[in-house]
Design a binder for these strands. Structure first.
Lengths: 356, 356
DNA sequence: GTGTATTGTGCAAGCGCTTGCATGATAAGG
DNA sequence: CCTTATCATGCAAGCGCTTGCACAATACAC
């Protein structure tokens, strides 16, 4: 009887490394091997060790498909996203992805990337009905997002990166946008600014709406109303930040402060201000929210930019961990986590000019 | 007998959407359904239509695991990469990933992301023996890369992004680094430059070695020898470009031209030159290779940078397409493709100062 | 009308694993 | 020494699909 355990070393004999041959080689049944490998109770320590040693030597790894078929699990999670988000230069998506990758690796899961061009729903349906993943992550919820209902109907575990309005419960991880923007607005108000322009994101996203509301709340809390047209709903890019700032600086009563949704936009604002010969922190103030995107830190602008800081990568990790917990039954249905932020004061905010 | 084909519409009844129930509902055997769905010959058009309609109505999609187990295929390819490449800000990896994603989506395959921390070999082994993918993509080959032999031994189809020395045949897609660098060097030589500093990548990678050799070849072709210490083997970042340029500008006989491996490095060089009050294209020349990384184009520097241009995203697409062809038997074993480049002349290269 | 193709469909055996239940062996209890 | 609990292991039935082969029905030839 060939003892696979003895043939370790240089040779790779994956070809025959299935349960059956292992069983044959060890003189045990497939069930025993399987249980030993999974550390099921009832298998004596000695046997287990023997099995594990043999498996290792043979380079045995259970066939994922067969295992999946038998268990109904794939130990794979899916990340569903618009293909475009990998193509645009200015995005925090890669950071989220990095976080997810880290968590998935740590938990020994696989990550299936499911980009879509325009029909996200059908990708989700396919993932669900073909049972290629145990759960999915979806991102950037709209203000009212139909995916929640769909995924619930499909009974596919999922975690959303971001919140949304929905009848039904769902799990999400989100930045504390509301409080971050209220805090930033408060700060600017404290410094005497009233003519603040918010360079926000596109209106269809929930987080954008939340930020707008937070901005208004901060004003309202002091019995003030934000100036009309204070909030600009534009994309999250340097170019847009630049254009918007340039345009608003031409206002009859130009803003004394800009509040940006991302460091990308803030960069553009800085460029516009420089072009106008305005010194940030002295002539005009800028603050923003900083997701901690790689290579685009509020700290690296000059002057360094006052911002609410969070780690979008950390969010990615959190999301994946929660999804896996959900899948493994280690957590119950709606896990809702709002990540804290930290306000980091730097030199980009100063007192509003008295005359302004 | 319930006719699933009639119950189309709002209801989602994925729960029972397996072959067996479909067969039952249609009064056909599972084999027939399976064959009809896969357009096997011998199934009359009429039956096929009926089956497809019913399947669609029922939201049926074959269970990927079961199908995989039966066919030995998963229609999934793996991308194996150091987790780190998703964490660093300056990388062309995301662009490659975008290209791969595009191709994979177009060919209706899935993409499994397999990051590793340090032990790539064991990830590859696992992928192979657990049969979770039909093939893998590996990147950035070393000068002599053990992965080739490993993957061949594992009999896992694979395509390498980049070339390497190897006894055995293997498939790859690579930029034409050799000729691009020879061409760039030629250009600088034409302009009279001799004291050129090459800011290359880290020496362990094959493409770095190829570029160094190309540089020397261009000199040799004119019976010249490059100045000693001409080639700097450093990382591909702005910071490194800056530091290296600063250092070399302090040479007793400072370079009259810099040749950079990436736009990232070139940016750093520009910064260093500006700091020295040198005008690019007049006082000193710079050229580089431009992979077309999102958000980091040679065109956007000022002055715009003369460069050999390729599309790293296109390379990603190509790689995935070739791997899929290989898997599907549409291509035979070693497919080796070297992507062309285009030399784009801009304003960053001028004549070497006579006295220099 | 018989013989042979051709056509449409089904049977059943896997694919490689997990797992409920059964079984034989050993240990413990009286 | 027999009974019962405990332990270590195996049997066999799936999981949901694909596919080689067989078969019945129909079409065609003569």
């Amino acid at each position: 009887m060939p003892n696979l355990a003895m043939t370790k070393g240089k040779r790779l004999h994956q070809d025959t490394a299935d349960l059956k041959s292992l069983a044959l080689a060890l003189g045990l049944s497939q069930s025993t091997i399987s249980r030993a490998l999974r550390a099921h109770p009832g298998i004596p320590e000695a046997t287990r060790r023997r099995v594990i040693a043999a498996a290792e030597a043979a380079g045995y790894r259970p066939n994922a498909r067969a295992r999946g078929l038998a268990t109904g699990r794939t130990e794979t999670i899916g990340l569903v996203f618009p293909l475009q988000r990998l193509q645009l230069p200015e995005t925090n998506f890669v950071d989220v992805l990095a976080g997810i990758s880290t968590a998935v690796t740590a938990r020994n899961y696989n990550l299936l990337l499911s980009p879509f061009e325009d029909d996200e729903a059908s990708v989700l349906r396919k993932l669900a009905s073909s049972k290629s993943v145990d759960g999915v992550i979806i991102t950037r919820p709209l203000v009212r997002d139909p995916r929640i209902a769909l995924l619930n109907a499909l009974r596919l575990p999922f975690v959303v990166h971001g919140r949304t309005e929905a009848q039904e419960p769902f799990s999400f991880v989100d930045t504390d946008n509301d409080n971050a923007f209220e805090r930033l607005t408060d700060l600017l108000l404290d410094y005497g600014h009233r003519r603040i322009v918010v360079i926000n994101g596109l209106a269809q996203f929930r987080y954008v709406a939340a930020r707008a509301a937070a901005f208004e709340r901060a004003f309202a809390a002091r019995g003030l109303a934000p100036p009309p047209g204070a909030i600009e709903f534009v994309s999250m890019t340097e170019a847009t930040g630049y254009e918007t700032a340039m345009r608003r600086l031409g206002d009859p009563a130009p803003p004394t402060a800009f509040l940006c949704g991302s460091v990308f936009q803030a960069r553009g604002v800085y460029r516009a201000l420089a072009q106008h010969g305005l010194v940030v922190g002295r002539d005009i103030s800028v603050a923003c929210h900083d997701d901690g995107v790689r290579g685009c830190s509020a700290m690296d602008l000059s002057p360094p930019l006052t911002a609410t800081a969070t780690s979008i990568r950390g969010a990615g990790e959190e999301i994946a961990l929660i999804l896996i917990d959900l899948i493994e039954g280690k957590a119950a249905a709606p896990v809702q986590k709002i990540l804290p932020f930290e306000l980091v004061l730097r030199n980009s905010v100063g007192l509003a000019k008295p005359g302004a």
